[in-house]
Design a protein around this nucleic acid. Structure first.
Length: 297
DNA sequence: CTCCAGGAACTCC
DNA sequence: GGAGTTCATGGA
């Protein structure tokens, strides 16, 4: 925990607990929650409302302050500080990236994308979400994830959040692998998952029977081994595995290459450019470039 | 109508 | 070990 966050206290709006956090350096909440790494955040007026790690919160940014509703000081310290990557020194990371790569487009992408953070999402949710993402577009990925959660997740009490965009709505956690497994492939297919239904089932199966073990995977050191471990699931290839590791397994070295990144690489980089040039924070460089291309194309 | 989306499996040679 | 095809779905 950064020393900077020592003075946080729980405040209340009626019954609703919230915290205010002043942060150091650059933080861009809008870009962070809208750069394609997560699919369950929705902007309601000036607040982002969403379910993550089984909880419903909303978060907004005002100048150098973040306000998180439906969260106590303990929630912030134990959960949200890390989830939102507020415990990470991005100034240091950016400097290292710029030392490793002076490509002019990358320099521009970093300048433009400053404040984007890689979230630390739930491992299973990341795996499942990026299986769904294949050959799909972001609005439809979100729809499918919502449908999955609505059908098979646990309902979350939203009564305290009525004044923060939750009035008259229902919220559900992301379903566990066993909930998906017991629902069966036909049911998963009926949620418009298409050819991905059998992939989601295989992942759920391997999670439940222990073929894939999150803790074991998190202890693998080399990127290639970790990628190969995840690729044992039918429907997980290099790209999905890279996204899952980057967004859900506490790694910054994966460099997912999708259709957008292919365009970036051949438009602005030399032919035989190797993303490992970026070093151990390659995944963060990738996110700057992804956001840059998506907003400038 | 065709083309495409944060791809991967499968089928050829 | 590449190159081409197929896989559901929905929006442009």
């Amino acid at each position: 925990m950064s020393k900077f966050f020592e003075n946080i206290k729980t405040e209340y709006e009626g019954e609703l607990p919230f915290v205010r956090v002043r942060y150091e350096g650059a933080y861009n909440l809008d870009k962070t929650l809208d750069c394609g790494q997560c699919f369950r955040w929705e902007k309601v007026n000036d607040e982002w409302l969403g379910v993550a790690l089984g909880r419903l919160i909303s978060i907004k940014q005002i100048d150098n302050e973040l306000i998180i509703y439906n969260a106590t000081k303990e929630d912030f310290e134990n959960i949200w500080c890390h989830y939102f990557a507020l415990d990470e020194d991005y100034d240091k990371i950016d400097i290292e990236l710029l030392e490793n790569c002076q490509n002019p487009t990358f320099v521009q992408a970093l300048e433009q994308g400053k404040g984007i953070r890689i979230l630390h999402q739930d491992s299973w949710e990341a795996v499942c979400s990026f299986i769904i993402s294949q050959n799909n577009n972001i609005p439809r990925i979100k729809k499918i994830i919502d449908a999955l959660s609505f059908a098979l997740g646990k309902q979350i009490d939203a009564s305290a959040m009525e004044n923060h965009g939750a009035r008259g709505r229902e919220f559900y956690s992301f379903p566990t692998p066993d909930a998906i497994l017991s629902a069966g492939e036909d049911f998963i297919f009926s949620l418009k998952t298409g050819f991905r239904a059998k992939y989601i089932m295989d992942a759920s199966q391997k999670w439940c029977d222990g073929t894939i073990n999150e803790e074991e995977l998190k202890q693998i050191e080399t990127l290639d081994e970790a990628l190969a471990y995840l690729c044992r699931v039918k429907g997980i290839g290099l790209k999905v595995a890279s996204c899952a590791l980057l967004f859900g397994f506490e790694r910054y070295d994966p460099f997912p290459i999708d259709v957008w990144m292919k365009r970036v690489l051949d438009k602005y980089f030399e032919k035989d450019f190797n993303p490992s040039t970026f070093g151990k924070y390659a995944g963060i460089a990738q996110q700057y470039l992804f956001d840059f291309e998506r907003n400038n194309a």
